[in-house]
């Protein structure tokens, strides 16, 4: 495994300085924005640079659903599991997407093209059922069009 470049991490720290305990979550968010996930080496470096214990950063990274400790896909597919989506057939959509990508929620395709997640309500209940790919919304999602929609992301 190649060593992770710590340069971007230092850039984030510099940008956010001074970083104290209270900024641990935005710090991790920015690091994930920069690396796509939270590499272990980077978290250990953040800890020694900021004095925020590594245990603390690890505790945050595993508590909040947003954070990934493993390298992530280039695109993130999020299936809404909110109530409105649930009563309007979220299950069928989930099955269709699982089949199309060949992975389950929380997993990443081998070619790192997609990571699949579920999300607790994206706040567009009137479009239920909803799927988000990266920052795009797909409302009234038709399970038959899964292939077509997924195909739009390389």
């Amino acid at each position: 495994m190649t060593a992770v470049d710590l340069g971007p991490a230092h850039a984030v720290l510099e940008d956010m300085a001074p970083v104290d305990h209270g900024h641990a979550i935005p710090l991790l968010q920015n690091i994930q924005e920069s690396y796509g996930y939270l590499p272990r080496e980077v978290l250990l470096e953040l800890s020694s640079e900021t004095g925020i214990p590594a245990s603390h950063l690890f505790g945050l990274a595993t508590f909040y659903a947003q954070f990934y400790l493993e390298e992530h896909g280039r695109h993130t597919v999020r299936v809404c599991r909110g109530t409105a989506c649930h009563v309007r057939g979220r299950k069928i959509i989930q099955e269709a997407i699982d089949e199309e990508l060949g992975i389950g929620p929380g997993e990443t395709t081998e070619d790192r093209r997609f990571s699949l997640e579920t999300v607790a309500c994206v706040g567009t209940c009137f479009l239920a059922p909803v799927v988000m790919i990266d920052h795009d919304y797909f409302g009234n999602f038709d399970p038959k069009k899964v292939g077509e929609i997924i195909g739009g992301y390389e």
Binding site: I25, P26, Q29, L60, F63, Y64, Q66
Partner: peptide
Amino acid sequence: VREGAGAF
């Protein structure tokens, strides 16, 4: 502004 990190 603080963005939530995914915890209901």
